[in-house]
Design a protein around this nucleic acid. Structure first.
Length: 804
RNA sequence: GCCGCUGUGGCGAAACUGGCAGACGCACCGCACUCAAAAUGCGGCGAAGUGAUUCGUGCCGGUUCAAAUCCGGCCAGCGGCACCA
C-alpha cells in the first residue's frame, strides 16, 4: 500500500501551481474540445458517489483529449438556486446565500480531492448577481420578442413547496422534488412560449449525435401529431371546432364531447336546459387532483348537454354533445368528435351511455372492442370514402373538408408552454415592473440589471400563493422606468431551470460584464462537443436549454442553432443490494470515505470499472479492492523497470493493441473494458521476465486519465523537471504491430469445438484446413465419415462438416 | 395501454460486422511464505460425469457449416409517457 493521501495532495498542488489544466486562448492554434457534464446543485449532503460517475468519465475524456493535443475546455460551476437550500435556511434561520457558500466550499474541496482537471479559473455560480444579470437579460429578450407572457390558468401547485410547478416537474401527480401531492389552482403565471419551437426541437434532433433514447424521449414528450380541425354546426347557432388525427372516420362520429372547462358552456347557457347538472359536473372535475384524474382513467363519466345538438358535417346526422373530463381543455380545441368503433375511450364512453357504435373501417369486431389498429383497413359505411384504404381516405377527407370550408389540416403537440414563475425567494427576480399608468408590465432597462434579490427577514412561503418578496414593500414599490410614475416590481422568481439553461455559454467567457459571453469566445467554443448528463433531465434541463439556445440563435447572440453536438447519458449508481441510495435507508456511499481509505485514483478506477457506463450499476464496496490491488501491482512493477527505448518483441503486440483499445474505448465510453485491457496488460508485464522503460512509460500514459495521481508520481522519476504526464502526448500505435506472428485458431467439426491449432497470421485456408485435419482429436472426430464441406475464416476458425 | 431498454457463472460483467461463451475483477477453494494471521505469490473456479464427452447466454420455434448475436412468437424486470383525440 502506498501513501495515496500524500501523493495525491502533492500532485494536485503541482498541477495547480503549474496551471496545466487552464484553458488556452482561442488563438493557440489547437483544435478545440469542449467537454461538459451537468453542473451540480450544491446540496447540504455534499458530493454523492453518484456524481463521481459522470464527472470521472468526462474527466477521463478531457484528460485524454488534452494528451491528444487538443485545447480542452472542461469547466465546473454551481447551479445553486433552489428549494432545498431555501427550506434549510428557513428551518435554521440563516441566509440561503451563506448556506450556498458553505455547500459550494465543500463541493469544491471534494472535486479537488478527486483530481478532476477542471479549469478552476472559469468557475461559475448561478446565484452570483454578475451571473444572474445575464439570466435576467435573456428573460427580457424573451419578453421583448413576445415569448414570455403572463396568463391566468390552471397550474400545478405543490402543496408542500407552496409554489407552482412546470408540467415537466410533476411526476405521477406529485412534486418531482419533494413528492408532495400536486393540485390544480387558477393563478396568473409567467409563461415561456416553448411551443413556438416545438417543430424545430423535434426536427433538429435528427442531425445531432445524441444517444437514441434521449431523442425518442424528447420526441415523445413534445408529442407532435398530424391531423385536422373540423367544424361541426350546432343547434345553438355557432360552430364547435374539434381536432382529430382520424378525420377519415368522420362517418363513424356518433356524438361529441367537450371538456368541462370549455367556454361554450357559458355561451350556450341560454339554450342548455340542464345547466345545473353540467356546472355540478364541472365543479366535481375541478376538485380532482391530477393524481385522482390519472387514477380514475378507467371509468368514464359525463353529462349530456340537453338543448344543444351538433350536426356531423359529412352526413348531416344530428348527434348529441356530452361534457366529460376525459377530454382535456389543454390539448387540441378542448372538444372532440367521438368515434366509438375506432377509439378505446370513445368505445368505453359509448358503452356506458348506450350510444350507437358505427364501424367505418372493416376488419375488427366492434361487438367486442374498439378496432383501433386499423391503419391497413378499408373504409365502409362512409359514403364517398367507401372502398378506400385508410391512408387514401385520410387524404380525400381533408381535401373535402378544406374545399367545403368545414375544416383544415392541423398539427398539435402534447408539449405545453413552460410555467416559468415560482412563488419563492431563492431564485432570480423576474426583471419587470407593473405600471398602472403604462397599462402593464414594463421591462427593467438593461443598464439597471441585475435586479438583485433583497435581503428579507422571512423566506417562509405563503399559502396565498404570493412570493415572500411581496412583503418587502420597500423593494416592491419602485418607479416606472418608462413614465417615472409609481410602479410595483414583479415578486415571483424564476424556476431552478433558468440559470442552467445557458450556463455552458458563460463558461466560454465567465467574467464578461458587457455580454453573456463575447462573440469570439462563442464562435470558438460553441457548440459543446460532448455533453454528458442524466436521463432524468431529458425533458427538463436538456429540452429547456435547447429551447433557450435556439432563441438566442434566432436573435443573433449565439452562432449555432443547437447547444450540444453530442449527448451521452450515464446510468444510476445503486446502493448495496441494488436499491436506490437514500438518507432514509442509510446506504448512501460518501466518496470521501473511499478516498480516505484507498485514494482518489482507486475510486476513479472503480467507478469507471463498475460496468457499462450507460447502465445502472450496483455499488459493491468489496470490489473496490480489486482496483486498489491493480495500483499496488503497478507500483511493484515500477520498482523493477530496466532501461530500454523499444518495446520488447514479447510485449510489443499487446502494447500496440492496448493503445488502440484504450483510446477507442474512451471515445466510445467503454471505460470498463479499457481498464480491463490495462489490467490484462499489467498481468502480462508481471509474467514477462522484465519490463523496460519504454513499455512502462506507455503503460502509465494510458492509465493516466483514469489514475492521474499515481501515474504522475511514477512519471516524475523519468521526466525532466517541470514536465507533466497529464499533458504528455498520447501514445501512438502501429496497426501492423497489433498482431502477433501466430494466432490460435479454433477447429470445429459440425460446429462443435474439437481443438485449437496455432497457425501463422493470415495463412492460406488450405494450410489451416490441413493443419486442422492433422490434429489427432479432429482426426478422431472425422474418422469414418465423409467430409461434405470445409469452412475457413481467416485468423478465426475452421469448421469441418461431415456426414455419416 | 403505448414507446424505449435489459435478461449471460455465486456476484459485477466481457464477447468487433454471426466465428473458441464467460475476458477483466470480486467472492470462494487449494498450495507456498508465516509460530500464526494479514498482505503477497502460484494454481483452480458455468453444470453433470472417473473419463472421452454431454449440456449451457430468460422461454418456445426458425434461418445458418456456425446464433448470446439474425428472424418469428412468448415471459420477466427496469425506465419514460399516459383519457394527448
Amino acid at each position: 500500500m502506498y501513501d495515496h493521501a500524500k501523493i495525491e495532495k502533492k500532485q494536485q498542488k503541482r498541477w495547480e501551481e503549474a496551471g496545466i489544466f487552464e484553458t488556452l486562448p482561442s488563438d493557440c492554434g489547437k483544435k478545440k474540445f469542449y467537454a461538459l457534464f451537468e453542473f451540480p446543485y450544491p446540496s447540504g449532503a455534499g458530493l454523492h458517489v453518484g456524481h463521481t460517475r459522470p464527472y470521472t468519465a468526462m474527466d477521463v475524456v478531457a484528460r485524454k483529449r488534452r494528451m491528444d493535443g487538443e485545447n480542452v475546455l472542461f469547466p465546473i460551476g454551481w447551479d445553486a438556486f433552489g428549494l432545498p437550500t431555501e427550506n434549510y435556511a428557513i428551518k435554521h434561520k440563516v441566509h440561503p446565500a451563506s448556506i450556498t457558500e458553505e455547500n459550494i466550499n465543500r463541493f469544491r474541496a471534494q472535486c479537488k480531492a478527486l483530481g478532476y482537471s477542471f479549469d478552476w479559473k472559469r468557475e461559475i455560480n448561478t446565484t452570483d448577481p454578475d451571473y444572474y444579470k445575464w439570466t435576467q437579460w435573456i428573460f427580457l429578450k424573451l419578453f421583448e420578442k413576445g415569448l414570455a407572457y403572463k396568463k391566468k390558468m390552471a397550474v400545478n401547485w405543490c402543496t408542500s413547496c407552496k409554489c407552482v410547478l412546470a408540467n415537466e416537474e410533476v411526476v405521477d401527480g406529485a412534486c418531482e422534488r419533494c413528492g408532495a401531492p400536486v393540485v390544480r389552482r387558477e393563478k396568473e403565471q409567467w409563461m415561456l412560449r416553448i411551443t413556438a419551437y416545438a417543430d424545430r426541437l423535434i426536427d433538429d434532433l435528427k442531425d445531432l449525435d445524441y444517444v437514441e433514447r434521449v431523442k425518442t424521449q424528447q420526441t415523445n414528450w413534445i408529442g407532435r401529431s398530424y391531423g385536422a380541425e373540423v367544424l361541426f354546426d350546432t343547434t345553438a347557432g355557432d360552430k364547435l371546432k374539434i381536432f382529430t388525427t382520424r378525420a377519415d372516420t368522420l362517418f363513424g362520429a356518433t356524438y361529441m364531447v367537450i371538456s368541462p372547462e370549455h367556454p361554450v358552456i357559458e355561451k350556450w347557457a341560454g339554450s342548455i336546459s340542464n345547466m345545473s347538472d353540467i356546472l355540478a359536473y364541472r365543479e366535481a372535475a375541478a376538485a380532482k387532483s391530477d393524481f385522482e384524474r390519472t387514477e380514475l382513467v378507467k371509468d368514464k363519466t359525463g353529462v349530456e348537454i340537453k338543448g344543444v345538438r351538433a350536426i356531423n358535417p359529412v352526413n348531416g346526422e344530428d348527434i348529441p354533445i356530452f361534457v366529460s373530463d376525459y377530454v382535456l381543455m389543454s390539448y387540441g380545441t378542448g372538444a372532440i368528435m367521438a368515434v366509438p368503433a375506432h377509439d378505446t375511450r370513445d368505445y368505453a364512453f359509448a358503452k356506458a351511455f348506450n350510444l350507437p357504435i358505427i364501424e367505418v373501417v372493416a376488419g375488427g369486431d366492434i361487438e367486442k372492442e374498439a378496432f383501433t389498429d386499423c391503419e391497413t383497413g378499408v373504409m365502409v359505411n362512409s359514403g364517398f370514402l367507401n372502398g378506400l384504404t385508410v391512408e387514401q381516405a385520410k387524404e380525400k377527407i381533408i381535401d373535402w373538408l378544406t374545399l367545403n370550408l368545414k375544416g383544415e389540416r392541423k398539427v398539435n403537440y402534447k408539449l405545453r408552454d413552460w410555467v416559468f414563475s415560482r412563488q419563492r425567494y431563492w431564485g432570480e427576480p423576474i426583471p419587470l415592473v407593473y405600471c398602472e399608468h403604462c397599462g402593464g408590465f414594463v421591462p427593467v432597462p438593461e443598464d439597471q440589471l441585475p435586479v438583485e434579490l433583497p435581503n428579507v427577514e422571512n423566506y417562509e412561503p405563503t399559502d396565498s400563493g404570493e412570493s415572500p418578496l411581496a412583503k418587502m414593500t420597500d423593494w416592491v414599490n419602485t418607479t416606472c422606468p418608462v413614465c417615472g410614475g409609481p410602479a410595483k416590481r414583479e415578486t415571483d422568481t424564476m424556476p431552478q431551470w433558468a440559470g442552467s439553461s445557458w450556463y455552458f455559454l458563460r463558461y466560454t467567457d465567465p467574467n464578461n460584464d458587457r455580454a453573456l459571453a463575447s462573440k469570439e469566445a462563442l464562435d470558438y467554443w460553441t457548440p459543446v462537443d460532448w455533453y454528458n448528463g442524466g436521463m432524468e433531465h431529458t425533458t427538463l434541463h436538456l429540452l429547456y436549454s435547447r429551447f433557450w439556445h435556439k432563441f438566442l440563435y434566432d436573435i443573433g447572440v449565439v452562432p449555432t442553432s443547437e447547444p450540444y453536438a453530442r449527448r451521452t447519458s450515464h446510468g444510476m449508481i445503486l446502493g448495496e443490494g441494488g436499491v436506490k441510495m437514500s438518507k432514509s435507508l442509510g446506504n448512501v456511499v460518501n466518496p470521501d470515505d473511499i478516498v480516505n481509505e484507498y485514494g482518489a485514483d482507486t475510486l476513479r478506477l472503480y467507478i469507471m470499472f463498475i460496468g457499462d457506463f450507460e447502465k445502472t450499476a450496483v455499488m459493491q464496496k468489496d470490489a473496490v479492492k480489486g482496483c486498489a490491488r491493480f495500483l499496488d501491482k503497478l507500483i511493484a512493477i515500477s520498482e523493477k523497470v530496466v532501461e530500454g527505448k523499444e518495446y520488447s518483441e514479447r510485449l510489443s503486440p499487446s502494447i500496440h493493441r492496448t493503445i488502440k483499445k484504450v483510446g477507442d474505448d474512451i471515445e466510445a465510453m467503454k471505460f470498463n473494458t479499457a481498464i480491463a485491457a490495462l489490467m490484462t496488460l499489467l498481468n502480462e508485464f508481471s509474467d514477462a521476465p522484465q519490463v523496460n522503460r519504454a513499455e512502462f512509460l506507455t503503460f502509465i500514459t494510458l492509465l493516466n486519465p483514469f489514475a492521474p495521481h499515481l501515474t504522475e508520481e511514477l512519471y516524475e522519476k523519468y521526466a525532466p523537471k517541470g514536465s507533466f504526464l497529464s499533458v504528455a502526448p498520447w501514445p501512438v500505435y502501429d496497426p501492423a504491430k497489433t498482431v502477433a506472428s501466430t494466432v490460435e485458431i479454433a477447429v470445429q467439426v459440425n460446429g462443435k469445438l474439437r481443438a485449437t491449432v496455432a497457425l501463422p497470421v493470415d495463412c492460406e485456408s488450405q494450410l489451416a484446413i490441413d493443419t486442422a485435419l492433422a490434429d489427432e482429436r479432429v482426426a478422431a472426430a472425422v474418422a469414418g465419415k465423409t467430409i461434405v464441406k470445409t469452412i475457413s475464416v481467416k485468423n478465426k476458425i475452421v469448421n469441418i462438416v461431415v456426414k455419416g
